[in-house]
Design a binder for these strands. Structure first.
Length: 716
DNA sequence: CTAGGGTTAG
């Protein structure tokens, strides 16, 4: 700019002078600079020609490294140049129009770009490419594909740029059929050898979960460049094979290829060991790359090494929203809301505008009911900042409200939404289930289908867990049918939920069948079958599954031990139970929670080891709750321990628990020893307290689908 | 051509 000014003042510069100036701004950071030059040109009464506009637009477009820069003023810049073009009659040049189209697209103004395209007097492959690429880059993947078909119909032959711009859209939307068709078309057009085309297609297959195809393409590449390797490392990472990603990285080093910053980012996103990648980053000298350090911070944060993430953030000059969000969500996961808020304030202090993702990171950290007020405050922040228009934020709020059983608020947020994406339906359905209102969830499911929204595995898993609560075996079976008919992925969540539903509704054999149909069960699936066997009193099967799980190299968690311990309790296996409790705490370093303790107390009590049971309770690190005391009371019934029983019942009475189960236990205890007066007294007390004493009724299969569809409405 | 933050679930 300054240079231009100095030169301008000395003598009238020529057009070619401006041209070379504009060329020098190609790749600069600021599109304003090129536009300023252009304004000066107009002021000096030099007449711009087609080449001038082409150079200007190229400089402007190249300064916008990423798409959808869209701000208010951005569109104006585009249309100002546009009007100059029309005024000077330069708008009949295809290449100038294409440059303008590209600029519009990079500004995120797809509508303007489309209008320009429709009005262009003639078009060529390059203008079609710019249009398709623009739609694809701005996230309009289906439109990009539609345009591609239109381009072919109009008789244009795609070139390598066409393929390379279009194929990522197929990958991002997992359109493998369209992707492979384009692959075929590319080969037919003689573009199959092109390394860029090949890399793009390799990545597309990986995103569509077809790793075999990616590997095939990669192997047949005669010349593998750094991008090819990065693509493969990313491909393994995206599909959960972090070991293979690391292996390919090492193989790449062996072939003495220099890694690039993207290699590091791909490795990091492959969930590699952060420390190892960190070493490579330093070794390769990438520690000044913003995106590399940001990814590293994210990985440390994701792995729970929040201290390291923080340290890196504090010592690096990079202060960006992504790093801060990663650290925030790490604290959210730990439930440390104080630090979450601290970082949120830091975002504002740094004059950065928190976005939807930052907002969600805060919301999912609000777990403690004591922090619910903060949650409501953030709802207010969402309204005030305008972030509430983002359905991600609404969704985060819906799950937060359902977490605290504030279903009314969740529902009203839901009803206000114009477009309801699948995830929001899922959030509310699971909200209803968690709030103990599974019939509402079922009703919502019905409405969802009426709305034309297709459920996925998560929807089904949530509904199935609702079936467990009500013993709705029939509905569970209907859902299972749905899963089979619609090819819902049975692995992981849905399979686990099915097993859980069947075992809890008394159909162990179906649960076993589902379990056997799962190829590579995950830990949760193993847990559900173990708990199922325990629930049905088949301890030896539970133990077999437990050892098989270990053989598969899986690490048992708290839920696993809940199942194993309850198997021991049911089988009266005191020695095994005590041993597993020790393994859990010592070998796997898992803190026993109230449920584990209740199970242990039950185990000792049922075996008549009351002294040991009491000793266990006294040694507990957490305050025993009604479940723990109740387990002991139940043992008293078996061993006719009236005195201890009475003590425990008093304790339970003062714990003021809503569960009146202890009245029933106490009444049974008196009945066993023949104290019928006391039985009557306890029964009377129970009725007084509001209990109806009708526990012990089987609820399984009481409802039919018709019942659900006809009788249960959302507004009760 | 390749890449980075978040939500729903057993």
């Amino acid at each position: 700019m300054n240079l231009a000014c100095t030169l301008c003042s000395s003598k009238t510069p020529s057009l070619s002078f401006f041209h070379s100036l504009l060329t020098s701004y190609t790749g600069s950071q600021n599109s304003k600079l090129a536009l300023d030059i252009f304004r000066q040109l107009l002021e000096t009464n030099v007449n711009p020609v087609d080449l001038t506009f082409s150079l200007l637009l190229k400089a402007c477009a190249s300064s916008l490294s990423s798409y959808a820069y869209a701000s208010f003023s951005a569109g104006i810049e585009g249309s100002q140049v546009h009007s100059q073009l029309v005024k000077r009659g330069i708008n009949q040049f295809v290449y100038v129009n294409t440059a303008l189209l590209d600029f519009y697209m990079k500004l995120g103004c797809t509508t303007d770009a489309r209008k320009l395209f429709e009005n262009m007097p003639c078009r060529d492959v390059v203008s079609w490419n710019a249009l398709i690429c623009g739609y694809s880059q701005n996230g309009y993947h289906f439109d990009a594909l539609d345009l591609f078909v239109q381009m072919l119909r109009d008789g244009f032959r795609p070139n390598q740029t066409t393929i390379v711009s279009l194929v990522p859209s197929c990958g991002l939307r997992e359109l493998i059929l369209q992707g492979s068709s384009i692959h075929g078309l590319g080969i037919k057009a003689g573009l199959g050898w092109d390394p860029q085309v090949k890399n793009a297609i390799t990545s597309m297959y990986a995103k569509c979960d077809d790793l075999k195809a990616s590997e095939l393409l990669f192997e047949e590449m005669s010349e593998k460049n750094i991008v090819s390797w990065n693509t493969m490392i990313g491909a393994y990472g995206q599909n959960g094979f972090s070991d293979k990603a690391m292996f390919f990285f090492k193989k790449m080093l062996e072939e003495s290829l220099q890694p690039s910053p993207v290699t590091m980012i791909s490795l990091l996103s492959a969930n590699a060991v952060p420390e190892i990648v960190h070493c490579y980053i330093i070794k390769c000298g990438f520690n000044s790359y913003v995106s590399v350090i940001t990814s590293l911070i994210c990985l440390y944060a994701k792995k729970g090494c929040t201290d390291m993430a923080e340290l890196l953030y504090k010592t690096s000059p990079v202060k960006n929203l992504i790093s801060l969000t990663a650290i925030m969500s790490s604290y959210s996961e730990k439930g440390d809301i104080k630090l979450v808020i601290e970082y949120f304030m830091q975002i504002q202090q740094l004059d950065m505008k928190p976005d939807a993702v930052a907002m969600i990171s805060v919301l999912c950290g609000i777990i403690d009911p004591a922090h619910f007020v903060i949650g409501r405050a953030f709802h207010g922040y969402g309204l005030q900042s305008g972030l509430i228009v983002d359905c991600l934020v609404v969704n985060g709020l819906i799950s937060m409200y359902s977490r605290f059983d504030e279903i009314e608020d969740a529902l009203s947020l839901f009803l206000e939404m114009n477009e309801k994406p699948l995830i929001t339906w899922n959030s509310l359905i699971s909200g209803f289930v968690q709030a103990g209102k599974p019939s509402h969830a079922m009703e919502l499911f019905r409405r969802m289908k009426m709305y034309g929204q297709k459920p996925d595995g998560i929807t089904i898993a949530s509904l199935l867990s609702g079936c467990c609560q009500l013993g709705y075996l029939r509905i569970g079976e209907v859902l299972h049918n749905y899963v089979v008919r619609n090819n819902v992925k049975v692995e992981d969540f849905t399979g686990t939920a099915l097993i859980d539903m069947y075992t809890k509704c008394g159909r162990l054999e179906y649960a076993e069948r589902v379990f056997k149909s799962i190829n590579d069960p995950c830990l949760a699936t193993w847990n559900s079958i173990i708990s199922g066997y325990s629930l049905h009193g088949i301890e030896h099967q539970a133990f077999i599954c437990y050892s098989e799980l270990l053989e598969h190299g899986l690490k048992p968690d708290r839920i696993t031990f809940l199942g194993v311990l309850s198997a021991c309790t049911h089988g009266g296996l005191v020695l095994e139970g005590t041993e597993h409790f020790l393994i859990m705490t010592k070998e796997y370093d898992l803190m026993p929670d109230l449920q584990h303790c209740a199970s242990m107390v039950g185990l000792l009590g049922r075996a008549g080891l009351f002294k040991e049971a009491l000793e266990f309770i006294n040694n507990m690190e957490i305050e025993p709750d009604s479940a723990v005391w109740g387990a002991l009371l139940s043992a008293c019934c078996i061993h006719q321990q009236v005195k201890l029983g009475e003590c425990l019942a008093k304790k339970l009475f003062f714990l003021n628990n809503k569960n009146g189960g202890f009245y029933v236990l106490m009444s049974n205890l008196y009945a066993i020893v023949g104290r019928w007066d006391d039985v009557a007294r306890v029964r009377y007390m129970m009725i007084e307290s509001g209990g109806d004493g009708c526990s012990g009724v089987s609820v399984i299969q009481v409802a039919s689908v018709e019942d659900i569809n006809n009788n249960v409405l959302l507004d009760e």
